[in-house]
Design a protein around this nucleic acid. Structure first.
Lengths: 174, 174
DNA sequence: CCTTAACTTCACAAATTTCTGAAGGAAGCG
DNA sequence: CGCTTCCTTCAGAAATTTGTGAAGTTAAGG
């Protein structure tokens, strides 16, 4: 308790004016939602931290410090997030430091771009239709499910296009 | 190996004309996709088995037999699936047996009806906007993300309506 | 070049999750 | 009303996952 308070004061003296406790509470609660949705704990926490940073970017050390986790944990989490295209890595030229950035409006596009996932589901279902036979009840059910995913696939890009328009009108061309 | 073959012959003699091996391969590969998407293993396997059954329904015993799992495992998996509205339970009147059914065209509606999830995300984000302050860069990023989820929320029901129309034209009013 | 800072990888300990066997009901059937 | 069948619950063994410390790698800076 005393430690946390001391740390918070220290950080605020360093120039920030944010309520570190409130931010931390948000980070943990948002991360919890992500975890419940299937994301691993560390990636979720790291992502939430980046999302709630003013820069939209943090260094490995900052992440480890705020989340109280080891450099190894940061490394693993960031590798995962980068693979999922939810963050990108930046090298500050002339430094060994790396910054991890969440591209505010690109990350949820990545979320919907689970295209990879959808495509794999479709592949598995297609295989199912083949092995069950399109004339069997099970095969027909499978074919319908497949059609649904294909439909969703097609709809999503249209939806994202509408979102970009909507976003531009509300938030301006960011 | 010999066991598997014997079992398959046995099942086919029992009246089925399906290639049990092929079905099983599909069940496992589709379940694997579901697992990768965050579902627990047993629910995923049970669900895949139901989906690929001709009836679209199986008893607890049939599930345990096909998947080689204990009644306890079936029970747990089915409870989870029922909570998620992905299967429903049926009591054959005058029997202690219970059948678990996947309503072919309702389960993926349940998938998109992760409304609950979306709403919770929105709640967490709203909290984030409040604690970060709408005037800070982080707060603005958060607000935009929130707007995205609200947008998606609204779009999904429209999309599902279009799907129902599309489905009716392709598969008939099933 | 050598030093040092920063990130990564790896092996392992700890925590968590998963599945089972066994015991405990509920509900049909005689 | 007791027997039997089926389902559920529960405690615990087994497997998996998770996060750490320590060693290794890369690249900047003197």
């Amino acid at each position: 308790m005393a430690d946390e308070r001391a740390e918070r004061v220290e950080r605020e003296e360093a120039g920030g004016h944010r309520d570190a406790d409130a931010v931390s509470r948000f980070v943990e609660s948002f991360a919890a939602q992500l975890v419940e949705a299937g994301m691993q704990r560390m990636p979720a926490r790291v992502f939430a931290a980046l999302l709630s940073s003013d820069e939209g970017a943090m260094t490995s050390a900052e992440l480890g410090d705020q989340l109280r986790i080891s450099p190894a944990a940061v490394s693993g989490a960031v590798r995962y997030l980068a693979q999922q295209h939810m963050v990108s890595r930046e090298r500050e030229p002339g430094s060994r430091r790396e910054r991890y950035r969440v591209h505010s409006n690109q990350w949820y596009e990545a979320l919907t771009n689970r295209e990879t996932v959808l495509k794999r589901w479709e592949g598995a279902l297609r295989e199912g239709v083949t092995s069950l036979g399109g004339h069997t009840p099970a095969g027909r059910r499978m074919a319908e499910t497949l059609a649904f995913f294909e439909f969703v696939d097609g709809e999503i890009s249209a939806m994202m296009e509408r979102w970009r328009v909507h976003r531009a009108t509300v938030f301006g061309e960011g």
